[in-house]
């Protein structure tokens, strides 16, 4: 599981659904959650939260990704690789934090990721969890 500390910068609500924008340094992550500021007290402008997402949900790509329909696209750098027969785990540096992506070794090979290489990561807004930093009653 990847965990990134973030700060909520903008909230837009529609009924019980909330579109959250949260900043990790200069990168703005977009996350969609069920709930609104009335029943989820941590949904508040400026509050510190954590973004959680599964390694297997991280999509990696080379190039700019302009024509891919995913709002969360960030540049990152390959730190190291853990090579398995079935899977390859790629460790990446993103905004000063280390995250990892788990992908099939086949695609890892065909893309031949190199340590130090710059990549683009893609995350769907509905794959990211929010977690309140200090304990708040839900």
């Amino acid at each position: 599981m990847n965990i990134l500390p973030a700060t909520i910068s903008q909230l837009s609500m529609n009924g019980n659904l909330t579109w959250v924008r949260a900043a990790v340094r200069d990168f703005i992550f977009q996350v969609i959650v069920i709930g609104n500021p009335e029943n989820k007290l941590y949904l508040k402008d400026g509050s510190s939260i954590e973004l959680l997402f599964n390694e297997a949900e991280v999509i990696l790509g080379k190039g700019s990704g302009e024509n891919i329909c995913i709002p969360n696209q960030f540049p990152c750098k390959v730190l190291s690789l853990a090579q398995g027969t079935m899977f390859t785990q790629v460790f990446l540096e993103l905004a000063g934090h280390t995250i990892s992506a788990l992908l099939p070794s086949d695609s890892g090979e065909s893309f031949s990721f190199q340590v130090g290489e710059s990549l683009q990561i893609y995350l769907r807004p509905n794959d990211i969890f929010l977690q309140a930093v200090e304990k708040v009653q839900s």
Partner: peptide, 10 residues
């Protein structure tokens, strides 16, 4: 419910 991590949005 408070026994566990209800801070998580899932």
């Amino acid at each position: 419910a408070n026994l566990f991590n209800s801070r998580l949005s899932g």
